[in-house]
């Protein structure tokens, strides 16, 4: 019973998402909201601001640097979680056996 309920929820949410997807702008639409505000400024001034030809690098490391800092911390947090869960667990087991 709970399984069919889950399938029903998935279908309903999926239908809503697909319906919402029809409202998105077309792929590569130059007049889409995302492409009309800051994108032009970045593309026009990116090289002039930083003398870095690779616009992707300029984007992730300069204009969106704070975001990249967060990403790096996320990666590091994953490693730290592994460290705390696996290594600490193993050490405790060893202490118990010895």
């Amino acid at each position: 019973m709970a399984r069919y309920l889950g399938v029903l929820v998935i279908l309903c949410v999926g239908a809503v998402l697909v319906y919402g997807g029809f409202g998105l702008p077309a792929f590569g639409d130059a007049n889409a909201p995302a492409a009309t505000h800051v994108s032009d400024h970045y593309i026009e001034h990116g090289y002039h601001d930083t003398h870095t030809p690779n616009l992707v690098t300029v984007m992730i490391a300069d204009y969106r640097s704070f975001d990249t800092l967060g990403e790096t911390i996320v990666v590091f947090t994953a490693g730290l979680a592994c460290f705390l869960l696996l290594r600490a667990e193993r050490r405790r087991r060893e202490d118990g056996s010895e």
């Binding site: 002039h48 601001d49 930083t50 003398h51 870095t52 690098t57 300029v58 490391a61 300069d62 640097s65 990249t68 800092l69 790096t72 990666v75 590091f76 994953a78 490693g79």
Partner: peptide
């Protein structure tokens, strides 16, 4: 302009350290 260039490089090196160690 070149300070921003250098800043990008420093940040990238930091990311490389973090990703490698992790």
């Amino acid at each position: 302009v070149y300070l921003r260039n250098v800043g990008i490089l420093l940040v990238e090196i930091g990311v490389a350290f973090a990703v490698m160690g992790t």
